[in-house]
Design a protein around this nucleic acid. Structure first.
Lengths: 344, 344
DNA sequence: TTGTACGCGTTATCAG
DNA sequence: CTGATAACGCGTACAA
């Protein structure tokens, strides 16, 4: 049914090798034959067979994307969606297919299996827990692997946003504006970013000689809902600012603050994280930290393709930290009128 | 490096065919040799090569899952997440890999390409728009294809929840309880479920001889946020009930109603769709329609594997409609004390 | 129950 | 610049 290399060769009166060269963009083909072969290929609607290619070349051009199955829990966090979309786009740009692997206990088709069977060339791991057990076999197996986000294991190649630095920057901004009781609505403890952002919060306080008060930290779960609960709980301890670890929770907190007659930013300043679309539309507009999941994805794909192209078991782990931006709007009580960016 | 069939054969002193039979669970192998070969396989950590297998057998055991790129817009709708998780699980159960294809204009690696190159054996299409242009080439190409959700094209195999019937049932339930001004917060018009659920709403009204009033319908976008806007807008037209097309919007509506001093269910009854976890925790607990995305996924995978196993260009399109359940809780103003299910 | 031999559609090596 | 030819690792008739 579908034509093959050989058939194209016969039809165009050249050898299979030549057709192969044309297909793969090898320069050592005369313009004329190339043009002719190309015409036949188009006419036949020929596509090289994936499996045959994989068998001969040892590569499938499929990348595995491992996403946390707990994605289900991260209901209102669009981070993973954007990340996934970014991975899909970057993979496509680099002529790779994307195989999705939802890390679930009990699954047979783990990323490790996919590698061992030669289904995928490499793995991009986006963890939901700081210390994922699925990671170990991949590291041990000396497999092309890139992690996105904070990871416990130091042997791993990783791409990450500057969670700690940007959080410190945001809180410092609040302190500079005169706030002294800065509260924090953190992420769930199992989430890898939680620790880094909390650390940034604490580092800022410490730099200003302010004692860390656990009562001013509420552990949320990334949902707007939990942002409301957080604000309600924190109000009992009279904060004059709240740094929420994502925009959804900041939005929830704002709703709750307003319903309690608390003015933002006059009584309580508010800062989020993510810079989702609605952040600028909030009333008051939300000061927040912009990260770029698509850039994380792109960087991860490129790093992984590097590793696949030049495997080196002894290469030291590579690490890329992507910058973030503090987007200053009205909710933090900045004197500035218009929205302003303060680069990291 | 990695051992091959041949190596295992040599090591166990049998032929490659025998090893192949053992690997593939062929019965025509003596228990003794099977046991022996199995031992060698385990010792060597042997895994059959994916590409070689695909080349020889003509099948890759990879299924393509096409999800709407617009997933980005469906921010707080966990439906796609659950669906994706269900697909991952079902694929794993049936020994299939799952290739993710985010339908994006301009992508080179479309599902059609994946099929033509022999990367995947079949396609599961979960559309975001009722009439997706990506579908046409797949249908024309006579490719193993299953759609999840409402689809315009009648030639396609599909698996779907009973959106229309369950919506009609929910609204009928409200009418039976004496409500007469039942409003509807619908989904966005591009979403395939919107039309079906709206049709169910209208059908219920019609059956009770109530004239359809467009002013009582608000088009939301599945977010809690838009549920709040919807309730605010609808309140101007004095509804005594609101049927929201998903739980997130119902939750938003509830928040808004309460903040306006409107009692639920006394003044306005409320019904959602999805039965997400928080529905039962709401105050009052939300009456809603339970659908089962995991079941949709499972059914779709099985149907697709059927089509792959027995391809028949002339087979009529198959259609499976999965039942839903109306979960009656307090928000609809039912007299019943406890939560109660009314099967479809 | 077991083994032999060939084919699947490419890529890659080596001559020419 | 072009063409034979040999892998690549496995499945599968066919033969034994």
């Amino acid at each position: 049914m579908a034509s093959t290399l050989g058939r194209i060769a016969d039809l165009s009166g050249v050898s299979k090798s030549t057709v192969s060269r044309v297909v793969n963009g090898d320069t050592r083909v005369s313009p004329d034959t190339r043009k002719h072969v190309l015409a036949v290929i188009t006419a036949e609607g020929y596509r090289p067979n994936f499996s045959a290619r994989g068998l001969a070349s040892g590569r499938t051009n499929i990348l595995a994307a491992v996403m946390p199955a707990a994605m289900t829990n991260l209901a209102s966090d669009p981070y993973f969606r954007q990340l996934l979309l970014g991975l899909a786009r970057s993979a496509d740009t680099h002529d790779q297919f994307l195989m999705l692997s939802l890390a679930q206990p009990g699954f047979k088709h783990t990323p490790e299996e996919a590698i061992r069977q030669g289904v995928v060339d490499g793995v991009i791991f986006s963890i939901a827990t700081f210390d994922d057990p699925q990671l170990e076999p991949l590291i041990e197996g000396d497999i092309p692997l890139v992690c996105i986000g904070p990871v416990a294991d130091r042997r791993v190649n990783r791409v990450d946003a500057d969670n700690r630095g940007s959080s410190k920057q945001a809180v410092t901004h609040l302190l500079r504006l005169g706030r002294r009781r800065v509260a924090h609505i953190s992420g769930p403890s199992y989430s890898p970013v939680t620790a880094d952002r909390l650390a940034g919060y604490r580092a800022a306080l410490e730099a200003w000689g302010i004692t860390y008060d656990p009562a001013l930290v509420f552990e949320g779960d990334f949902t707007e809902r939990s942002g409301r609960s957080g604000a309600r709980a924190l109000l009992r301890h009279n904060p004059d600012a709240i740094f929420a670890t994502n925009d959804a929770m900041a939005s929830g907190a704002l709703t709750e603050l307003i319903s309690h007659g608390v003015s933002v930013p006059d009584d309580v300043a508010l800062v989020g994280f993510d810079d989702l679309e609605f952040a600028a539309e909030m009333d008051p507009p939300l000061t927040t930290i912009r990260q770029d999941p698509a850039a994380l994805a792109e960087t991860a794909v490129e790093l992984l393709l590097d590793l696949i192209a030049e495997p080196d078991p002894n290469a030291p782990p590579r690490r890329v930290v992507l910058p973030t931006e503090l987007i200053v709007r009205a909710s933090c009580g900045s004197r500035s009128d218009a929205s302003k960016r303060e680069s990291e």
